[in-house]
Design a protein around this nucleic acid. Structure first.
Ligand SMILES: [Mn+2]
Ligand SMILES: [Mn+2]
Ligand SMILES: [Zn+2]
Ligand SMILES: [Zn+2]
Lengths: 138, 138
DNA sequence: TAACATTTTGCAACATTGTTGCAATTGTAT
DNA sequence: ATACAATTGCAACAATGTTGCAAAATGTTA
């Protein structure tokens, strides 16, 4: 497990530090999106708030995680797939937020639906955000 | 114009106050989503920050405006259609954010696409957020 | 219109979230 | 092991949002 995490950092040409290892491990262990607050709460070691902010920003920059817009405008982050690289995110998948447990999941298997846009408008990116009840909470 | 605004407040059983009139007028005049900061900036009279927060919350509660999730997790608000009522929002439309001018628009004419969700999941609400370039900026 | 009851506002104080500069520490390469 | 570069933690600050309460505005009734 720790191997995989180290490899991700190396692959992104990031130096291997305790904060990066621990925080990235949280993402690989929990199969769901995490907020800054989540990370501070569930992390064994108490990193400085600033370190967590900077680590998350670094991961986003490097294409390791992506941020997720949510209906309540809290900031969530989740692991990217291999296709994302520095400066080039391709997180075109549906995000599902369970109104029961509050967990946010990336639904990678679902196709992003085609959205028709008015004449004269052009599309860069489509975010689809579904609220509902997840499998475990049903 | 001011008539319409007054009517909306009456219809929602809200007392007619200067803050509510002015803030609601901003939404009817500007045909786009507004943030808390926008309102403080463009409003002629300088309302207290707290008043703006409370007015926006009241409008959301009453089904007059709805909040919009955005990719950068800033909080935006836009006018609801007539179908929204106290405690019952029906803002099932696409939101478009222009990456040039930064404006956010509600696309009411576009159909919300059908999203297929994995077995065992159920859907309450779908938010579709499109980033791109708007007609005026093209 | 005037008096009253109710609601809303503005202020102050506080809480939460995020940012920046800088010195001390840690990681990497020689 | 040493030297250099990058990262961390701290402090201070900025931005955003919340709460309690007294003053002011609004709606209601007489
Ligand atoms: Mn995702
Ligand atoms: Mn809308
Ligand atoms: Zn759930
Ligand atoms: Zn535009």
């Amino acid at each position: 497990m720790k191997e995989a995490v180290t490899d991700i950092l190396k692959h992104s040409q990031l130096s291997i530090t305790e904060s990066r290892l621990k925080i990235l491990e949280l993402f690989t262990k929990h199969n769901k999106a995490l907020s800054h607050a989540d990370i501070e709460k569930i992390s064994s070691k108490n990193f400085d708030r600033v370190t967590v902010y900077r680590t998350l920003q670094t991961f986003v920059d490097k294409g390791i995680i992506h941020s997720i817009p949510t209906a309540d405008n809290s900031v969530m982050y989740a692991l990217c797939k291999e296709t994302c690289t520095e400066g080039h995110h391709h997180d075109d998948h549906v995000h599902f937020i369970c109104d029961e447990c509050g967990n946010t999941y990336c639904l990678d298997n679902i196709d992003i639906p085609k959205v028709t846009i008015p004449k004269g408008f052009s599309t860069h990116q489509v975010n689809v955000l579904v609220n509902g009840v997840c499998k475990s909470c049903k």
